[in-house]
Amino acid sequence: MATEEPRSYNGVGESKPGLDAAVREILARLDTELVGLKPVKTRIREIAALLVIDRMRREEGLIAESPSLHMCFTGNPGTGKTTVAMRMAEILRRLGYSRKGHLVTVTRDDLVGQYVGHTAPKTREVLKRAMGGVLFIDEAYYLYRPENERDYGQEAIEIMLQIMENNREDLVVILAGYKDRMDRFFQGNPGMKSRITHHIDFPDYTAGELMEIAKLMLAQQDYRLSPEGENALGQYIARRMAQPNFANARSIRNALERARLRQAARLLASSERPLTRDALMTLEAEEIMASRVMDESKTKTAEHD
């Protein structure tokens, strides 16, 4: 029973079985709420196990140096990097590693200043805001611009490195971005690479996983697909995956948003009144089929709709 959140990590918080159960609950939720992402879940499981064991060791008076949990998430857009980062913040808080468990999401603009002397305070401001929680730097490779040696990004990286090293109990830094560009970023910043212990790769979703994600998203918003609708969505996913600019779960979410619009229009236009609860909840095949992706003649240019 996780009646009380573990606040401190020096053995005063929850008792062993309590913490155990809390972790199990978190991991179970992770399994049901996140589709696919095998390698990610495995790593989270390992980290959670380490933190639990560390706490038990500490209770037994054994040395348990707090581990470095800075991470790097690589993967294509829409593979769930931000979602997992949010979960990670929550998990770390419940495990008592992170005290506040909030997530601060930033990009290069929030860290790097525009003139000499502007970067350091700006970066420090962000780091301070994230203390006690998780700092998520999206598209972190933009911080490093080797083509411009006077770029202030380097300064931001140096300040971050220092705090990542000295205050590792106070904040967890997660860098995220495309795999190849992150690799190049680390080549130029070996110091950063060596301070990040966990490199996690987010694989692309399969069509089946995307369908599961779609259903999960709809269920969370009290919608569902009719059997024909599900069929249509299956076709839609297959087509959309083959197109350029496919952003995994994000594309699916956008498609569902647009299907909702079309459903609303269809319901308003229909003469059927009063609308049943069932009708309000169900997305039909025509909502999916109306998408431009499904239109043979336009598939080449279609990026949205």
């Binding site: 301070k128 805001r129 006690g132 205050n167």
Partner: peptide, 17 residues
């Protein structure tokens, strides 16, 4: 010393400053 820390959520930030 710098500006008041309106956005800090954790004491670690204050101790750092």
């Amino acid at each position: 010393w710098e500006t008041p820390m309106f956005e800090a959520r954790d004491a670690a930030a204050v101790m750092l400053e």
